[in-house]
Write a protein that binds this DNA or RNA. Structure first.
Lengths: 189, 189
DNA sequence: CGATTCATGTAACGGGTTACATGATTCG
DNA sequence: CGAATCATGTAACCCGTTACATGAATCG
């Protein structure tokens, strides 16, 4: 759904052909999406079938033909619906990362430290590449909001890792395994 | 992969049958996974095919038959590999949420405020249910680490939303649209 | 006796990725 | 001339979800 929103949102301001969209996504929105080329083409076809966009054939010089997509009124409605849903919904911060954490008692302290240091280095590197971009975007622009949001999460991640690493270095020992999890009366829907 | 890790990690300490595993996941690990019953059964079969676990038929009284799974040595190796990978790899904090943020210039300020307030309320509620559990887990236990990690991310999310809401309330206007994104020389792999 | 629990699955679908296919054109 | 760019896709697969199916046993 979010990918659909992304495509509609781009076409809302400017009609584009698939290749052009993919270029934009790669080169200018690389910091907030990984949408693959084939996925984009696939989605464009689907959106056209559903009547949210229309396809126009175009050709520039002797280059291959290209299909320029334009938002329809129905597409504009769809965009607003998806946008409202995205802004309204609270969604869980990803917790799959923490699955490994549950089993740290199975890893020798030295290996654990090494692994987490590596993770930390990777995160720090990602953060640095993002930091460079944030200042290049105009203050108050949506992109800058998104980038700062991202940075905030990277920072928690890093300080979180630092906390664990510090405890590891101070001989702090992890007590208990996964079975020390207590019963949580999770309401079943 | 993370789900596989989770199942292997549970079976590492105790052989279990599918239903029992699912119960444990629902009632005691609900705060860090959403793994569905059918997915768990499917994964168990796959893990058995691959030789990471063995299946034993068991029956208690007149209850339906059940299949008790036990980790094999190959499974133990697999567990350690997946765990090492999980602990080592740096993975991007989810950015799909931010796609909506890119288009906030398309929403009237009042609607935007309302939507974000709703998101905020949802997040705050989730956070409260988690907070209750954290104190009930023994200090230094893996589960507590995971819970606190989760809480930290919820907190950034909330203060992040508060920041935006504050700017909205102080008549701060968002300038520029998605096309104000600059070119980021993302290295193509 | 009806609902819930115990226990295991299958079928269809959804969303996305990877790898592959195609073919002209322009660049070095 | 070979490589990269322009331009669009298909096929196979992967991981996971939803909805459905089954059937005995126990609970209230």
């Amino acid at each position: 759904m979010d990918n659909e929103l992304l495509l509609l949102g781009l076409l809302r301001l400017e009609s584009m052909h698939g290749y052009q969209l993919n270029e934009f996504l790669d080169k200018r929105l690389g910091f907030l999406t990984d949408l693959k080329h084939s996925t984009a083409y696939y989605l464009l076809n689907k959106l056209e079938e559903k009547g949210f966009i229309t396809k126009d054939v175009e050709r520039e010089g002797n280059r291959p033909e290209r299909y320029v997509y334009e938002l329809t009124p129905a597409g504009r409605d769809r965009f607003h619906d998806l946008l409202a849903a995205n802004l309204r919904e609270a969604h869980m911060p990803d917790y799959n990362t923490d699955i490994g954490l549950l089993f740290i008692d199975a890893v020798p302290a030295e290996d654990l430290r090494e692994a987490l240091e590596e993770k930390r280095a990777g995160l720090a590197e990602m953060l640095e590449t993002i930091r460079v971009y944030v200042d290049e975007h105009p203050a108050g622009s949506p992109a800058r909001y998104a980038l700062r949001h991202n940075i905030a999460h990277f920072e928690v991640e890093l300080s979180w890792l630092d906390e664990i690493l510090e405890e590891l270095n101070s001989q702090h020992i992890i007590r208990g395994d996964i079975f020390s999890c207590i019963q949580t009366n999770e309401e079943t829907a």
